[in-house]
Design a protein around this nucleic acid. Structure first.
Length: 426
RNA sequence: GGAGGGAUGGCCGAGUGGACGAUGGCGGUUGUCUUGAAAACAACUGUGGCAGUGAUGUCACCGGGGGUUCGAAUCCCUCUCCCUCCGCCA
C-alpha cells in the first residue's frame, strides 16, 4: 500500500509511475477522490462528535445535580446530533470501504533505476555467470532423462492429483532433499539467516499483508468452508511473522529462511509448459525474507540477490541476473531481479529466484513498524524477499547440465555429502 | 465436536453505564542529591487520523466487527484467539 499523504502531494509522480508500469487499471484517481470525500465527512462528523461529547458530559453533571428537566432537554438535543452523526457515519463507512479497497489495488512505485518498458521485452540481462555446457551428443530434456532413469513418475502423479503433479522417486527425491538441506545450511551458517518452519495455511489477512489478495486470489488454492488459504510461497507466512508489531531498531535487519511447499493454481497459463516439472501446482522452495531499516533497502537487496546467486555458482550452474522492467514488475515490488539458470537440455533459461525490494509497501499493509534509534515515534520497515532457491527448476538444471552420453547424471560435488556420497545417478 | 471461563497500555493488574485514554505497581527517560554508582525523591513516559505554517485543537483506539444509549472499557450480538473439562486423534 502506498502512503496516501504522499499520493496527495505527488499526484504527477504517481500518474507517471502508473504510466511506467503500463497499468491503466490501478484505481489511484478513485482513491484520491475518495480520500477527499472521506476527509470532508470526517471533519464534519468529528465536529459533531465533539459537540455530543461535551453535551453528554453536561447531561451527566445535570443528572448528578438532579436537574432532570434541563438534562432531558439536553438529551433531546444530543439525540438530534446523534441522528446526524449516524447518517454521516454510514456514508463515511461506505466511502472508507471503497477507499481501502482502492488503496489495496494500487501497485507499488518502481525505483528510479528500473528499466522502463511496456512489458517483459524491456527486461535487461545485467549479469551472466558461467558457460553453458557443450555436449558431444544430443542432450535430452529432463522429462526424457528422468523417465529413463525412473526417478520422476509423471503418470502416477497425474493419476493421483491430475495434470501438473508429479512424483519424485529414489535419487530425485533425495536430490531435492539434499538441495534443501544444503541451501538451508549455507543460508543459516554462512549468510546469517534464522530458519523458521511456518504454517502452510494462512488467513486472508496474511494474504492481504503480502499483497496476494485482493487482486490475485485466482492463482491461490483455498479451503471451501473455512478462512484458510494455501500459501503460494513462504513469503506469505514469514513476512506476516511480524504483522502488527513494532520492532526495536537494534534488532534489524532480521533475516529469515524457510523451506516450504508452494501451491499455485497456475490458471492463467493453462496449456503452457505442460511437460516436465517446470510449471507445477505444488513445489518446494527455500525462501529468504528480510526486515530492514529503509536506508539499507538497496544494499540488502544486493546481498540477498548474491545469497541466491552464490548457490548457483557453487553448484556450477550457469545463470544470469535479469533486471525486471517496469511493465513486467510484480504488483508489490519496487525493484526486482530474476535469477535464471541455463538448462542445457530444453535450451532455456529457467527462473529459479525473484529477489525483490518492496520498500514499505508490504509493511504498510501488514502494519510492520520499528522504532528508529534517533528521533521519536515509529516508522514502517522495508521488506525484501527472494528464493534461495526454487527446487524443481534447480533439479531440471542439474539433470540437464550434468547429463552424460549414457543418460546418467553426475551429482554436483557440493551435494555429494548430502547424497550419501553418491557421485552419479544412473 | 460439546460445556464453561477469559482477552485492558512495553509488562503485571484495577475498573460493571457519566470528569476513564483509563487507579496502582513494574519497567523506561530525564532531573535533584552524590566524586561516581546505588538508594531515595520528583517529573515525564501508548498508537494513529483530521484541521492548522505553528503553538495547538479535535476525533478514534480497553482482542476484531456490529448494536443499544444523550453517553460504552463497562450492557447485547457476532467473529478470532487463549485457558479448563469432556470427546476424538498423528
Amino acid at each position: 500500500m502506498l502512503d496516501i499523504k504522499w499520493m496527495r502531494e505527488n499526484r504527477d509522480a504517481l500518474a507517471e509511475a502508473m504510466r511506467k508500469l503500463n497499468d491503466n487499471t490501478a484505481p489511484w484517481e478513485q482513491a484520491l477522490a475518495l480520500d477527499e470525500r472521506r476527509r470532508e465527512i470526517l471533519t464534519r462528523v468529528e465536529a459533531l462528535r465533539a459537540e455530543r461529547n461535551s453535551g453528554s458530559k453536561g447531561i451527566g453533571l445535570l443528572m448528578r445535580e438532579k436537574k432532570t428537566a434541563e438534562a432531558n432537554a439536553l438529551k433531546e438535543e444530543m439525540g438530534r446530533i446523534g441522528d446526524e452523526i449516524d447518517g454521516l457515519d454510514a456514508e463515511l463507512r461506505t466511502v472508507d470501504a471503497y477507499f481501502e479497497d482502492a488503496m489495496l489495488r494500487i501497485p507499488n512505485i518502481p525505483e528510479p533505476d528500473v528499466p522502463v518498458a511496456e512489458d517483459e521485452s524491456g527486461n535487461q540481462v545485467v549479469k551472466e555467470w558461467g558457460t553453458p555446457p557443450t555436449f558431444d551428443f544430443e542432450p535430452k530434456a529432463h522429462w526424457d532423462l528422468a523417465e529413463k532413469l525412473d526417478i520422476i513418475d509423471f503418470e502416477r502423479g497425474v493419476k493421483i492429483a491430475g495434470s501438473r503433479f508429479y512424483v519424485l522417486k529414489g535419487p530425485a527425491a533425495r536430490l531435492q532433499r539434499a538441495l534443501i538441506n544444503w541451501f538451508l545450511d549455507v543460508h543459516t551458517a554462512e549468510h546469517g539467516y534464522t530458519e523458521v518452519y511456518p504454517p502452510f495455511l494462512v488467513r486472508e489477512q496474511a494474504m492481504l499483508g503480502t499483497g496476494n489478495l485482493p487482486k490475485f486470489g485466482d492463482v491461490l488454492y483455498r479451503d471451501a468452508e473455512e478462512d484458510y488459504w494455501l500459501i503460494p510461497t513462504a513469503e506469505v507466512p514469514v513476512t506476516n511473522l511480524h504483522r502488527d508489531e513494532i520492532l526495536e531498531a537494534g534488532t534489524l535487519p532480521r533475516s529469515y529462511v524457510a523451506n516450504t511447499p508452494c501451491f499455485r493454481r497456475e490458471k492463467v497459463s493453462a496449456g503452457k509448459d505442460v511437460r516436465g516439472i517446470k510449471r507445477v501446482h505444488q513445489f518446494q522452495k527455500v525462501e529468504m525474507v528480510k526486515f530492514v531499516e529503509p536506508e539499507h533497502g538497496r544494499e540488502e537487496l544486493e546481498k540477498l540477490t548474491r545469497d541466491a546467486e552464490e548457490l548457483a555458482e557453487r553448484l556450477g550452474l550457469p545463470y544470469r541476473r535479469v533486471a525486471i522492467a517496469t511493465g513486467d514488475l510484480s504488483f508489490v515490488a519496487a525493484i526486482k531481479y530474476d535469477i535464471e539458470l541455463w538448462a542445457g537440455g530444453c535450451q532455456e533459461w529457467l527462473e529459479v529466484s525473484s529477489c525483490s525490494l518492496f520498500r514499505d509497501f508490504q509493511a504498510r499493509r501488514a502494519n510492520i513498524r520499528y522504532r528508529p534509534e534517533e528521533g521519536k515515534g515509529t516508522e514502517f520497515v522495508y521488506t525484501l524477499n527472494g528464493s534461495g532457491l526454487a527446487l524443481p527448476r534447480v533439479i531440471i538444471a542439474i539433470l540437464e547440465n550434468y547429463q552424460q552420453a549414457d543418460g546418467s547424471v553426475v551429482v554436483p560435488e557440493v551435494l555429494r555429502p548430502y547424497m550419501g556420497g553418491l557421485e552419479v545417478i544412473a
